[in-house]
Design a protein around this nucleic acid. Structure first.
Lengths: 155, 155
DNA sequence: ATTTCAGGTGGTACTTTATGTCAACTGGTT
DNA sequence: AACCAGTTGACATAAAGTACCACCTGAAAT
């Protein structure tokens, strides 16, 4: 079971690495390290969470670099910034169609894979004149932990 | 036309004021001023945008107060923080079901009133164990201005 | 294997966005 | 007009993100 997960995340890592190459980005230690984290985690970490996880492993890793690499990954479409009401960016390396649930209390974000909620189209001619490329559905509610305790945690 | 809008926003203001009273909040100058702004604007301002608009009108208004009042309004359900991939909170005083379109380039946020996109239910038993209370759909694309010019603006 | 250099990184400084604290003030009630 | 719980202003601080520039490195060419 655990080894299945390991398998799946290293498979995901290889795909991300390939995507990186395909976009003409050099595979630096720092980028590999970030791709590893992103492939393993499914909790949609913030830039600072990723930095905190990696700074001990990757000697001399700079916070600036983490922000910059994440920006690059988003720009080339390898990773996305997910929408939430929180005032910080969270990143997701799974570009397949899926949705997110945000805990109102502690801010945790979980995936929801359920194609029943997929939209069947996009708005074409809306009154605001925007062209629409894509969408995200953000559900909100309470995570299992916050359902039990009625008080605040940190994500 | 313009007076219709004025009419509509003052109507909205009165509803918000009533909601404030109903929640047992005192109607201070500062809260009224914020409700006014929120009733008039449909651009989903950030806390600092509201502060910048109000600080000249409301003598001695404090930035802290703006943040605190918005928090309170969200807590009592008078206003909502909308979901977007941007790392800052945007506020919306329209609590009716509608959707948002965010410009990928400049960050502007517009409303989309189109019930065709409303979901017909919420996820009940999802694998992550979250209870789900509500949802938001965030579309992304380009605003009319950014469609013309291919370069960056500030919202 | 060595050289080369465009692209990438580290470190520092800085801005923007948000929160914590507490004395002083005020809306609404008596 | 007096009271006081709730609210505010000012300041300090934290958290999140950006700008800048000298130096370094991945990977392509030789």
């Amino acid at each position: 079971m655990n080894s299945d997960l390991k398998q799946a995340s290293s498979e995901k890592f290889r795909r991300l690495e390939a995507g990186c190459r395909a976009s003409g980005l050099s595979l630096t230690h720092q980028r590999r390290a970030l791709l590893h984290c992103l492939a393993q985690r499914s909790d949609h970490p913030t830039a600072d969470q990723l930095y905190d996880e990696l700074k001990s492993d990757v000697g001399g890793l700079s916070r600036t670099t983490v922000y910059r690499i994440l920006d690059t990954f988003v720009r080339v479409g390898l990773v996305s910034k997910i929408s939430s009401p929180q005032a910080k960016a969270r990143f997701d390396a799974d570009m397949g169609r899926h949705h997110h649930i945000v805990c109102e209390q502690c801010g945790k974000v979980a995936d929801l894979f359920d194609s029943d909620f997929n939209l069947r189209g996009l708005p074409e001619n809306n009154s605001s004149g925007f062209t629409v490329h894509n969408y995200e559905i953000t559900f909100n509610g309470l995570c299992p932990l916050c359902q039990k305790i009625g008080k605040e945690n940190e994500s």
